[in-house]
Nucleic acid binder design. Structure first.
Lengths: 205, 205
DNA sequence: CCCGAATGTCATCATGCGATGACATCACTC
DNA sequence: GAGTGATGTCATCGCATGATGACATTCGGG
């Protein structure tokens, strides 16, 4: 077909140093699979993502998913773990951090954890892992904040705040609500902040 | 196999009156399929629901779905239409109506329209139909309210309010956030109202 | 240089899905 | 009561998916 697809442009690496430069590198392949999986799970959710797609994007054979991770659900779990190591707990009450979060999501899409908030997954293990992440990163920090501020029903209100934020972020990503989807993070920051703030103040006025 | 599965317990209906009592009734079967589909689409979403399940719950053969509706996507569309005929536009700013909405959702689960807000569907026709419903029933009424109240960015804010509400309702249904899921509609009404209210007031303080 | 393990590729299987069409059964009209 | 279209049942197809194992290739150590 395409002339591009010629013989591998291999520089015949003179065997070179016994350096980490390997053409076959399981570790690297594993990483690429993980990355591709994270992207696709983020874009389409767990169910709509196929192992073949993951393999294609990672430039690896789908069968390696089974070999390296055990299967698609285990790959998903690995994705969650990787995400949790990278991301620090977010302070939703800090405008700057909130804006950062919105920007990051606008750029990279909501994470699998976010999606799991509103979409129950088939595999209970997967569902549970996602929930743990959600609490550690969003609910608990906000709940602590509310508690120290003397907000009643701190936990319930924190959960409502996170749920509302999740809805906003996911709707933005889904494109169902046109103006919301096309608005820049800065444009919605004020309102989103107001929403989160309202969960703390409602009724206590 | 099982003794239960004996000859059809047919009461030999003496032919009886020429009354509407028919053993074969396409209209009724269609209805049952529609009901079952609505329930299942509501519980698990479009993708996770199979035509065989729908048939089983409806007590009808799955092949009738193709015959009566054209296929699974068309059945989904019929579900949306049926839902739209039943449900009137909801006024999210009225506490009583909002409570009624929350109660209804707590009882029957969120409708397919609600779910479509945050989960893009594969079929664009389906997605579009869901969006139309969403605007007519929730966004537009709220937007009008905001406009007459002189709220700036009425449309954007209305969309954010609907998105937030959707997140709350779906998270409640998903069971991911424990306290939110177990709370009664009355318990969260105040906070939810505050959230919607906040979309109008934020920044204009 | 050679061997065994690690790594990657490929063909294939089993399963579940939606769809289709052939066939059986019923209901209504004449 | 015979015929005809409507209605329901069943077997099966084609397709996509995740998984599996056989095979090919490469790497690294002896």
């Amino acid at each position: 077909m395409s002339p591009e697809q010629q013989a591998p442009p291999r520089g015949r690496t003179t065997k070179a140093t016994t350096a980490p430069r390997r053409r076959r590198d399981a570790g690297r392949t594993r990483e690429r699979l993980l990355e591709a999986a994270h992207e696709l799970f983020t874009e389409r959710g767990f169910d709509r993502t196929t192992t073949r797609e993951i393999g294609e994007r990672a430039g690896a054979d789908p069968s390696l998913i089974a070999r390296y991770f055990g299967g698609k659900p285990q790959l998903y779990l690995a994705t969650l773990r990787a995400e949790s190591e990278r991301a620090a707990p977010a302070d939703l009450l800090d405008d700057e951090r909130l804006l950062g979060l919105l920007r990051k999501i606008a750029q990279h899409g909501p994470g699998p954890v976010t999606r799991a908030t509103v979409t129950p997954y088939s595999d209970p293990v997967v569902q549970d892992a996602a929930r743990t992440q959600l609490y550690e990163r969003l609910v608990d920090p906000l709940c602590d904040h509310f508690t120290t501020d003397g907000v009643p029903q701190a936990r319930l209100r924190a959960e409502i705040a996170v749920a509302a934020l999740t809805g906003i972020v996911l709707a933005r990503d889904a494109g169902t609500l046109t103006e919301l989807s096309s608005a820049a993070p800065e444009e919605i920051l004020t309102v989103v902040h107001g929403v989160i703030d309202a969960t703390a103040r409602a009724g206590a006025r």
